[in-house]
Write a protein that binds this DNA or RNA. Structure first.
Length: 284
DNA sequence: TTGAGTCTTGATG
DNA sequence: CATCAAGACTCAA
């Protein structure tokens, strides 16, 4: 059974269709500081196969700033500065208002996880490509991921593995407005707190919970996050927990980066992570 | 670039 | 249970 297709024209103007997503992803991927110094906008446009003007206007439309400014926000120098400004999560507390309430199901149910749960899911366009959003009958968000390729079967399979015993139903319209708001430049601040449902080890829950205080536009290093939780030497373990985040974006694992200022791994592609962080830096 | 330190997880006996 | 290998890391050679 195929994943439902997102409507090609979201009413949210920042939303990207697949072609534009690929273009921007390619541009972000092509960016590195040495190449930038060497050939600048012209070089990146060439790599993408567009004119400099065309590529630039695409960025303006999507992120509100041109290519140069956007890439500047992703420079190691800029990111390192942000990391130093706020070394630990305590820099962000007291949390303004909890945007996400995370409820957890006991870990260890194993293969019986999700029994009795009715989950509807759909595929929706976002500024970072198509996403798959899943929600329980009680309107708790229990999965949010990004879809690559045409069919999105792997994203659908992952949802099934997360909640093996749940009844999973397709509904491609139900959450259109919600997704628009989640990914709107205004962000979720204006929304009622969103309710999330997740399952993980105690340690993972602690990490995911902690991440929720990170506001948009902010970043923290894996080490800083570890220190925030009283395990200053456990950055490797913390990174594993961050990597297991089942509700992307809302649990903002993309805001955790290397202490060096480099943006490395992301479950849905490091280019997507760069797109998110660059975009958030612009619209925030 | 490489290796060692550090801690959680999941697989294996 | 005990052990082992493998990470979205970091730091020092």
């Amino acid at each position: 059974m195929l994943l439902p297709q997102p409507s090609s024209h979201g009413s949210l103007e920042k939303t990207l269709n697949r072609a534009d997503y690929r273009t921007i992803e390619m541009a972000v991927h092509a960016f590195d500081e040495r190449a930038w110094r060497l050939s600048g906008e012209e070089g990146i446009a060439a790599r993408v196969g567009l004119s400099r003007e065309h590529l630039n206007s695409l960025f303006v439309q999507w992120a509100g700033v041109g290519l140069s400014l956007f890439m500047q926000g992703l420079s190691v120098q800029h990111i390192r500065k942000k990391l130093e400004e706020a070394g630990e999560l305590s820099a962000f507390s007291p949390l303004p208002e909890r945007r996400c309430q995370v409820r957890s199901l006991p870990f260890g149910q194993g293969k019986r996880l999700g029994a009795g749960l009715a989950i509807t899911y759909g595929c929706y366009p976002t500024p970072f490509g198509d996403c798959l959003l899943a929600m329980t009958g009680a309107r708790e968000i229990c999965h949010l991921s990004f879809v690559d390729g045409e069919d999105g079967l792997s994203a659908r399979a992952e949802l099934g593995q997360t909640w093996p015993q749940a009844t999973i139903i397709t509904d491609n319209r139900g959450c259109t407005t919600l997704v628009e708001r989640i990914f709107s430049p205004a962000g979720t601040e204006s929304l009622q707190p969103l309710r999330l449902l997740v399952s993980g080890t105690t340690f993972q829950l602690k990490v995911w919970q902690a991440l929720c205080v990170l506001p948009r536009g902010a970043m923290i290093s894996y080490e800083g996050l570890a220190a925030s939780m009283g395990h200053p030497t456990a950055c490797r373990a913390v990174a594993s927990a961050v990597a297991a985040n089942p509700v992307s974006y809302l649990i903002p694992c993309h805001r955790v980066v290397r202490k060096s200022g480099e943006i490395h791994h992301y479950r849905w592609g490091s280019s997507r992570k760069k797109m998110m962080l660059g975009w958030e830096a612009c619209v925030s």
